[in-house]
Computed example of a mutant assay.
Amino acid sequence: MIYLDNSSTSFYKPHEVISSVSATLKNLSANAGRAGHYYAKKAAFALNDTRVKAANLFGFEPQRTIFTYGCTDSLNLAIYGLNIRGNVVTTAFEHNSVLRPLYDLKNSGKISLTIVNPDSEGIITEQAVLDAIDRRTKLVVINAVSNVTGTVLPYKEVYRRLQGTGIIMLTDAAQAVGSIMPSEICGDIIAVAPHKGLHAPQGVGLLMFNEKVELMSLRKGGTGTMSANLTQPNDLPEGLESGTLPLPAIMGLNAAITVYKRSCEKWRKKVETLGRYAFVKLKRCATVYTKNPVAGIIAFNVKNYDSAFTCDALGEKGLCLRCGLHCAPLLHKAYGTIDRGMVRASVGPDNDFKDIDYLVESIKQI
């Protein structure tokens, strides 16, 4: 089998990550911060060590670095936790993890919503986002990299222009880590999917925010602090992390960060090189929607076939790809593929040129 679905989740997990998850399950199955015994203290120390590593990697304060149960959880906490009233600006390139919460708030009358569509070249421009902002705008939500086409959006430029306006920017960085260095990912709030570009286990997400941001908790319950108080505490980070945290996944993230820091540039270059190679090759045998393959993502269709048909045909040849709408319906409406979707190939650092060559030859045989 050839795995080309790394935008969904990275298949490659370093042995250090696997070992860390296994060791935690075997030797550290305690509830961090909920007791004073040896294992609870050791678990709390390990949890804090991971928090500090993650905060340092992305340039945020540890107490404002929140563990969640995935990037969807992170985005929901950010969007609902801000308790915004007013206008929100977002783009047609967003994932349903952003769109569905925003439309829920819009339909309940709590916000107005402005969607920025791509231009005739299929690009979301900085100016288009800025032109959508008005005096009522309180929040801009933008993904750094499209999960469908791999397009890098102008999140840096928009964030720079928002400084001093009082408008908060939430950056969905789910697809960014791996092709963009963490230190270059900016926003007042950043949501991260560690199981993708960091090659961490599924089951843990990150939400980080600066001092401009105050979030209300969505999940009420035990925090290990102020237990006599029947209202949710506001202290960070515990006030936003009620319940037992997924320590095995978090310790897998701990190991993943260590491996990532020594491997990130090598991985990034390989993913970009393979992406560019696939881009050139696929343009000769398919309709390619990707504009710039720096993220190692190529979205395409073959002839007039439905994307599901193409994926099934290629799946029979041992190729693991993603078809359909990729949870990003507004992008497909903008590109005219809402009815048949797109096929997405997304490479990882464990892929090679032979995988791309086999994909291309398999497409020619459909």
Rank of each mutant, 00 (worst) to 15 (best):
A128E: 10
S8T: 15
Y38P: 00
T91C: 02
K220P: 04
V288I: 07
L282C: 02
G336V: 14
Q232C: 00
I133C: 12
P293S: 03
G33I: 00
D352L: 07
T91S: 05
S120H: 04
D5I: 06
D350I: 06
K110I: 10
L253W: 08
A174L: 07
A256G: 01
I133W: 09
T125D: 10
P349K: 10
Y289W: 07
P154A: 05
G221N: 02
P248Y: 04
L314H: 02
G36F: 00
G187E: 04
S112D: 15
S29Q: 02
Y69F: 09
L274P: 12
I190W: 08
V204N: 03
S112Q: 13
I115P: 11
D49N: 06
Q63W: 15
A256R: 10
D188I: 04
L28S: 03
K41H: 05
K364M: 08
T114R: 10
T258H: 10
K110T: 04
P101M: 03
L331G: 07
H15K: 09
L240Q: 14
N304V: 02
V148Y: 14
D119T: 14
R284W: 01
K41V: 00
V89A: 09
H15I: 07
L102W: 04
V148H: 14
A32Y: 01
T9E: 14
P329T: 01
G59H: 11
Y39W: 04
G243Y: 11
C311Y: 02
N96Q: 13
G70W: 03
R284V: 05
Y159A: 15
I297K: 14
R262C: 12
R161Q: 05
H326I: 00
F45M: 00
Y159P: 05
L162T: 12
A334E: 10
D357P: 03
D306V: 03
V145P: 03
